[in-house]
Design a protein around this nucleic acid. Structure first.
Lengths: 121, 121
DNA sequence: GTATATGCAAACAATTTGCACGCCT
DNA sequence: AGGCGTGCAAATTGTTTGCATATAC
């Protein structure tokens, strides 16, 4: 992958925030560094960065968010502000542990387990 | 909520399939019963049915899928065909149990825990 | 009769893509 | 020089909405 200033700015933005930003947020921040940058460029670079495993995509409802924490981890999602907070599975015991460690009151736990179903064995 | 043939067909379609269909799938099946049904009607009824807790929305990547199994449950998602298979959390012990019970080879477990973060206490 | 539901089409939001040009290597 | 990356605008996709008409109750 060849160097480009746009890609560098985009990656830095993602790495320097904890908010798991959307493409739009990245676009508006990037414009303060590169006023002429386009939204298409943002999306193209996000795809590339994901392919190169420099970032990961999190689908939050029907909006994509981007995360540069590439260690396997999960999220606490606040029902009120929508913030996503990183957690390691190791930290999880049960709701009580989460309440204690994160001061986060759990109302629901959702899980998607992926893999290969029996049709492909 | 007042009766309508459209809504009845839509709900029946969701209840009679295990595939967690998308709005588009529902629309095309519904047309075989009600040729003039519109996609707008499908979406409006999906919203209503969700508000009335007759169905639930599952966000799968960036597409919404609809599920009439209203008991709390999670999903196994096949990496190859994209199918979502229902599971009860009770069934989950670990990957091995899943392999045994569902003949499903687990490659990843993702979890979103929602609730209220400390900013709102 | 009146409120709710419908079909249709236009509007929207998020994301992708074709094209001519620009800039790394 | 050659190819990857860019800006711009138009195209796509999934979903929502305004409006006039139709239907349940």
């Amino acid at each position: 992958m060849r160097y480009s200033q746009q890609r560098e700015v985009i990656l830095n933005l993602i790495q320097n925030t904890k908010i798991h930003p959307t493409a739009d947020w990245i676009y508006s921040k990037a414009k303060t560094h590169i006023p002429k940058i386009s939204l298409g460029t943002v999306y193209r670079n996000l795809k590339k960065l994901e392919q190169d495993k420099l970032i990961a995509t999190i689908y939050d409802g029907n909006v994509a968010r981007y995360d540069s924490n590439m260690e396997k981890h999960d999220h606490l999602k606040c029902n009120i502000c929508g913030d996503l907070i990183d957690i390691n599975k190791n930290n999880i015991d049960i709701s009580k542990t989460i309440l204690r460690n994160f001061n986060f009151k759990v109302s629901d736990i959702e899980m998607t387990i992926s893999g290969t179903c029996k049709k492909h064995t």
